[in-house]
């Protein structure tokens, strides 16, 4: 290994682990304590990454408060240092981290909130794509419908949330007093997406969540219709399926259709 590579390795070990070996490389000119010089870099490293997390997860920050969020940030930074060129992607594993690690996993709404905030962030700068107009689909011949598959906007994200996470997020986002976390009787499906420059989200009924997941996985329309009998009488399936499709088109979630 070159001298330069060895030095840079020592610098990183100082930043990441506080390994003091780097001190021997640093010139002591008597102007400023050597330890102060080293600390400037280590403090800046932790602060910058903690700020990036706070920026990506403002509601998790509010729920935890400054001191506990800071403890979380320090722990996460140590567990998952950044491997990305852009700091925008740092923090991508926070939801999983909160779900697994004590003490945060004892408050399950934290992991859900992190997943929701990261989904918002992904929708915010996902690729652009023009939504399909309803007229484009209306022009399809009737025999094409059974094999119809849809392409969805790159911003579309799906989450199933057990807690009143979104309600809580909205209160925090509006600057209101957060409502108390409450666990629902069953998980509720949510969809998050962007239309032009605006991010949207809404809850899904259980059959819509299933249908959307299947269509996003590439299933043909006929298969999804057949599956809907799980929730509704066969006689009403065509009407329900058409209504769901119309809704997705109006939302701007669909960008292509092919047989």
């Amino acid at each position: 290994m070159s001298e330069l590579a060895a030095l840079q390795g020592r610098f990183m070990r100082w930043l990441l682990q506080g390994d003091p070996e780097l001190a021997a490389d640093v010139a002591d000119d008597g102007r400023l304590p050597l330890q102060t010089r080293l600390e400037v870099y280590r403090n800046a490293y932790g602060l910058r990454l903690a700020e990036a997390l706070a920026d990506s997860y403002p509601a998790v920050h509010t729920l935890l408060g400054d001191a506990r969020f800071d403890a979380l940030a320090r722990s996460y930074i140590e567990a998952h240092p950044s491997t990305y060129r852009s700091i925008r992607w740092f923090g991508d594993r926070l939801a999983a981290y909160l779900a697994e690690r004590a003490p945060w996993c004892e408050q399950p709404i934290l992991a859900e909130m992190a997943a929701f905030e990261w989904a918002l962030r992904d929708a915010f700068d996902a690729a652009d794509a023009a939504p399909l107009a309803r007229a484009d689909l209306a022009a399809l011949p009737p025999q094409a419908w059974a094999g119809l598959r849809l392409d969805f906007h790159p911003s579309v994200q799906r989450l199933d949330l057990q807690w009143n996470t979104v309600q809580l997020w909205q209160a925090i986002d509006d600057g209101r007093e957060p409502v108390a976390p409450e666990r629902g009787p069953y998980p509720v499906g949510w969809v998050i997406w962007r239309r032009e420059l605006r991010t949207w989200f809404r809850s899904l009924e259980v059959d819509e969540a299933w249908a959307l997941d299947r269509m996003r996985a590439g299933a043909p329309f006929a298969e999804v219709c057949a599956g809907l009998v799980e929730w509704i009488d066969e006689a009403y399936v065509p009407e329900r399926a058409a209504a769901l499709m119309a809704r997705w088109l109006i939302d701007g979630k669909v960008i292509g259709a092919h047989a």
Binding site: Q8, G9, F11, Y41, A52, P81, T83, R85
Partner: peptide, 18 residues
């Protein structure tokens, strides 16, 4: 950064011929 980790900071180089 080094070793695949990005410190997201502008870290100083030694001023050497190497």
């Amino acid at each position: 950064g080094a070793g695949g980790i990005n410190a997201h900071d502008l870290l100083p180089l030694p001023y050497t011929g190497e």
